[in-house]
Design a protein around this nucleic acid. Structure first.
Lengths: 352, 352
DNA sequence: CGTGACTTCTAAAACGTTTTAGAAAATGTG
DNA sequence: CACATTTTCTAAAACGTTTTAGAAGTCACG
């Protein structure tokens, strides 16, 4: 591997001191214009690029910002991550910051990874996703006074740190309203048990909208999948679909669940949306390829990530001080999986 | 932000020299066991973590490996990236290497990003995806003798560098054979114009399988989408579907194309797989949610990425020398989108 | 006790950069 | 010309680590 040229070499080639070269390149005022010119030329000629390590050492900054990857089951697929990383990359590059991805090794917790990241000085800031309701990572970062931005937010304390969130409340309230207006009165919700903030927000948005409707005929049946795997989800969904009084509209906490609802409903011979309306959240690519297309909400992940990057870069660079925050409203994407509530007697499950 | 403790502080607390502390922590033989013990304890007590910049400077290594993100259109979605990044993360963490993501800023080429990465010493190695047939990035890296691993491979030279590839030839040959065995004789291929190596491999796999069948009744109709956007794809597919002698089986260069074929065919009133068989490549999540499920090939992206990470870490760490390479065979995933060729007269496009 | 051979430790240099404090040179002023 | 001022440059220190070369101490042995 070819060695790269250093400040010393540029200085030697011009018979100047390294200090002068450094300051010339840094655009300082006390360097004669002519000298600055010469230095710039020679630096280009020699292909000089400042060495990162040298800079890091003296500045105390790494120029990196970390993303701690959530620990994932072996078969977990996730359209979110690619978009998120792309957006972060775009946002950071505009600020001259680089993105590093920190992964937990087997047996290591996300918190361990975070601690190492903070203490080793490999990053100047960090972005966290999938926030739990009592998130120890947030506590740690606050203690350390280490810059961070959350994708999501805690219920308490949200004034003390920076975050960007997509309002799950607003979305699920809207989902309810759209379906209510179409005549639905018995709602199903397929959700998870993990205490993630996004779960809490979406669920409470739905609850509040129901309360607000103030209609005693409205009912909500909730199916909770205890573990984060397909089998567990499938069982929870079956429970909801096969009960005697099946809801006429089912909302999935996220698209994967909604898509599974559609698939399982179709396996039972139900036609969507005539006999069952389904709504999801996220707008994953699969949502537009399913038949019928899944009605859902667009999080604009990539754009959010870009904004998060921008916020964090400003925090790290000292451009912004106090906590920054931003709440986005997801966009309703009406496709074919929802429609008017079935009339009259509840259709029975057809035999196939 | 709390300052982290340094070697000097640990040394002072024990009344030892920094050298001794460094060597004790490094497990050198010429440190008395008792001293080693004391140092280890004190280091733990003070929460000492070696500073990255200091290490980088003296070792000449950054401990980072880069992934240069392909430049993407604003609406490009890509289930590949998330899996790939996850796999790389998993692979690198096992080797004590960190992953950095380098993104091109607007107007910058991937090659520029790569050059900066190499010259700034921010990374010790790099992984490249989406290899073009004449890839200038590969040329540059070879010139620089900078360690890298390709996801994919060039046709020429493949002995001179390291790569991991999933055999597109094998997959497309198999796709042909499966469909041929089901009676199909007129094949359609929806592909792109860009000169990517994966395109060339898959296309030539198909051609070779056709040649090998040595059956004069076999025909292949190719539709090439000139640009990488949905509109262009749609037009290419329409051309294939609406021609007088429509193929009975259409293969998409990748799943997105195959899924679009399915959707457009269904819009034309064709039933799949009775009137048209469709096969894709990649096994994106949407492939399992479409109706019918898309028959495709599984690349095992995450696992491949893990292997790539392992290869590159070995190259960077000096464990492995010469070029490493590995060719994987994708797994055929038979779902519902392919079946026996329609009998007798070619069914006409139904009016809807 | 003197010598050599170990064992255990350390001073100092090196990595490449930025910054501080001040030197040297050029210019202006009386 | 002498002095002050301004402009332009530089030596040296600092960041935190690893490594090299060697010092100091200990021990065994004749």
């Amino acid at each position: 591997m070819r060695r790269r040229s250093t400040l010393k070499e540029v200085a030697a080639a011009l018979d100047l001191s390294v200090a002068t070269v450094s300051r010339a390149l840094g655009g300082y005022e006390d360097i004669a214009p002519q000298t600055r010119q010469r230095v710039a030329e020679k630096a280009r000629e020699l292909g000089y690029v400042p060495n990162t390590a040298g800079r890091m050492l003296v500045s105390g900054r790494s120029g990196f910002v970390g993303l701690v990857l959530p620990v994932r089951g072996p078969n977990f697929v996730d359209s979110f991550l690619g978009q998120f990383v792309t957006g972060l990359g775009e946002g950071f590059v505009a600020k001259g910051v680089d993105l590093m991805i920190a992964t937990a090794s087997p047996g290591q917790s996300e918190l361990d990874v975070l601690k190492h990241l903070v203490h080793s000085g490999r990053a100047d800031g960090v972005v966290l996703t999938r926030i739990a309701e009592e998130d120890e990572r947030v506590k740690f970062l606050l203690e350390q006074r280490f810059p961070f931005v959350l994708h999501g937010r805690l219920s308490s304390d949200s004034a003390h740190y920076s975050w960007l969130d997509t309002s799950g409340e607003a979305a699920f309230a809207q989902a309810f309203q759209e379906l209510y207006a179409l005549g639905h009165r018995h709602f199903g919700l397929v959700t998870i048990e993990e205490s993630m903030t996004f779960r809490r927000d979406r669920e409470s948005g739905l609850q509040m909208a129901i309360a607000e409707a103030d209609d005693p005929t409205v009912r909500l049946s909730v199916a909770r999948s205890p573990r984060f795997d397909e089998e567990s989800h499938r069982a929870a969904i079956s429970e909801l679909l096969e009960r005697e009084d099946r809801p006429t509209a089912i909302i999935g906490l996220f698209d994967e669940l909604a898509l599974m609802v559609m698939r399982q409903a179709q396996e039972l011979g139900l036609s969507i949306p005539e006999e069952l309306s389904v709504v999801g959240f996220d707008d994953v690519p699969a949502a537009s390829y399913s038949a019928p297309g899944l009605t859902t909400f667009d999080q604009a992940t990539r754009e959010s990530a870009r904004e998060i990057a921008d916020m964090l870069a400003r925090l790290v660079g000292g451009e912004a001080q106090a906590p920054l925050s931003r709440l986005k409203v997801p966009r309703f994407i009406a496709r074919g999986s929802h429609g008017p509530a079935p009339q009259g007697a509840r259709p029975r499950i057809r035999q196939i």
